[in-house]
Simulated scan of single mutants.
Amino acid sequence: MTTDGGGDSDGSDGWRLDAAERQLDAEVIRVAPGGEYTSPAPEAGDLLLYVTAGSGHLECGSRLEAVDPGCVTWVPPGARHTLTAGAEGLGFLAVRAQPTPSTPPPPPGRDGTGPSGGEPACLLHRVCARCGRLAPQVADRYCAQCGDPLPS
Rank of each mutant, 00 (worst) to 15 (best):
M1R: 05
M1T: 06
T2Y: 09
T2V: 10
D4T: 01
G5F: 11
G7T: 03
G7Y: 00
D8T: 05
D8V: 00
D10V: 03
D10I: 05
S12V: 08
S12R: 02
S12H: 09
S12Q: 06
G14M: 11
R16C: 07
R16S: 14
D18K: 01
A19Q: 12
A20F: 04
R22F: 00
L24M: 12
L24D: 07
D25M: 13
A26N: 01
R30W: 12
R30A: 10
R30N: 12
A32M: 10
A32Y: 00
G34F: 03
G35Q: 07
Y37W: 15
Y37I: 02
P40H: 12
A41E: 15
P42Y: 06
E43F: 10
A44P: 10
A44T: 14
G45Y: 05
G45P: 09
D46L: 05
L47S: 09
L48I: 13
L49M: 13
L49V: 14
V51I: 15
T52Q: 11
A53D: 15
G54Q: 07
S55E: 15
G56T: 10
H57W: 13
H57Y: 14
H57Q: 12
E59R: 15
C60L: 05
G61Y: 03
S62I: 03
S62A: 14
S62Y: 03
S62E: 15
E65M: 14
G70H: 09
V72C: 09
V72E: 10
W74R: 15
W74V: 12
P76S: 13
P76C: 10
P77W: 08
A79I: 02
R80S: 15
T84L: 06
A85M: 11
G86V: 07
A87Y: 03
E88I: 00
G89V: 06
L90Q: 13
L90Y: 11
G91P: 03
A94S: 15
A94L: 11
A94Q: 11
A97Y: 08
A97T: 12
A97E: 12
A97W: 04
Q98E: 14
P99D: 07
P99R: 05
P101Q: 14
P101D: 08
S102H: 08
T103P: 00
T103I: 11
P104R: 14
P104H: 09
P106S: 08
P106Y: 06
P106D: 05
P107V: 06
P107W: 00
P108L: 02
P108M: 05
D111T: 10
D111A: 09
G112A: 05
G112F: 09
G112S: 07
G112M: 11
G114T: 12
G114L: 11
G117W: 09
G118M: 07
G118Y: 12
P120H: 04
C122T: 01
L123N: 04
H125T: 13
R126H: 02
R126D: 02
C128Q: 02
C128P: 02
A129R: 15
A129L: 13
R130E: 13
C131Q: 04
C131I: 10
G132K: 04
G132Y: 04
L134Y: 03
L134C: 00
L134F: 04
A135H: 01
P136F: 01
P136L: 04
V138I: 08
V138T: 09
D140C: 02
D140Q: 10
Y142C: 01
Y142N: 02
C143L: 04
A144G: 04
C146V: 03
D148L: 01
P149S: 13
P149K: 07
P149C: 03
P151R: 07
S152R: 14
S152P: 02
